[in-house]
Amino acid sequence: MASNLARLLADSRRALFTMLGFLTVIWAVQVVNWLDDYRLSYDYGLRSGRIDELPEMFTMPFLHFGWDHIEANSWPLFAFGFVAAYRGMRKFLLASLLITVAGGLTVWLLERPEAVTAGASGMVYGYFGYVVLRGILDRNLLDAAIGIVIAALYSYLLLGVLPVAEGVSWLGHLGGLIGGLAAAWLLRNRAPEPASAAPAKTAANTTVNSTEGTSPNAALLKQLDDLGL
């Protein structure tokens, strides 16, 4: 129990520093981007349909088109990212990769060719889906409670996967959410199969039956032999 708690605390510290580091990077990039009239967002944001643009799916989460854009993403990114990471960094990194690729491919395949997509909101939706479904699949009381609270407080986010707002990459949101749900399913805890009690029971029954089937003389002789007589 103590070792599990120590591991949880260590993973929580790593999750905290990871998300603080991520936010530090995207805010530093935002300052440079702002000074350059957001050329980075246009140069390294993702455009659909071009093979040479595919690597930009890995740069677009770090880029934004304005201060309002990055401010709107930062708090939910930190909150959902921390909850997604606090139970283990390996699964978190794999989930982040799945979310990034799913969101990027959705935009690349379905977005209008003239549109440039950038921003971390796809990651926000991905971590949101990952955390909520993970709590259900893993049957973890804490995760389930966190997932329910998050689902209740941020249910409005689901509107972001619909084409209802002009200039918002709902495809990136939808792809990120799909990636987060897929990551929760693929990375779910698979409890080890319980040891079957049937063989032990059979063995016990066999022992009992062999004793019951032994003649009284044989049992007596065995007891005398045990006593050295």
Rank of each mutant, 00 (worst) to 15 (best):
1 M>P: 07
3 S>L: 13
4 N>T: 14
15 A>T: 06
16 L>N: 02
25 V>I: 15
26 I>Q: 12
28 A>G: 11
29 V>T: 07
30 Q>A: 13
30 Q>V: 07
33 N>M: 01
38 Y>N: 10
43 D>W: 09
51 I>Y: 08
52 D>P: 00
56 E>I: 11
57 M>T: 07
58 F>D: 02
62 F>L: 15
62 F>D: 06
62 F>V: 08
65 F>V: 08
69 H>E: 01
70 I>N: 13
72 A>C: 10
74 S>F: 14
76 P>K: 08
81 G>I: 10
84 A>H: 01
91 K>T: 02
92 F>S: 04
96 S>Q: 04
99 I>R: 03
101 V>W: 08
103 G>I: 04
108 W>G: 03
113 P>A: 03
114 E>T: 11
125 Y>R: 01
126 G>F: 03
128 F>V: 02
135 G>P: 06
151 A>H: 00
153 L>S: 05
155 S>H: 12
155 S>L: 11
156 Y>E: 12
160 G>I: 02
167 G>T: 04
175 G>K: 06
175 G>C: 06
175 G>S: 08
177 L>Q: 00
180 G>Y: 05
187 L>D: 03
191 A>P: 10
193 E>Q: 13
197 A>Y: 08
200 A>Q: 10
201 K>M: 13
206 T>V: 10
206 T>S: 14
208 V>F: 14
209 N>P: 02
211 T>D: 12
212 E>C: 12
215 S>M: 12
215 S>K: 10
219 A>S: 09
222 K>Q: 15
227 L>D: 06
228 G>H: 04
228 G>C: 06
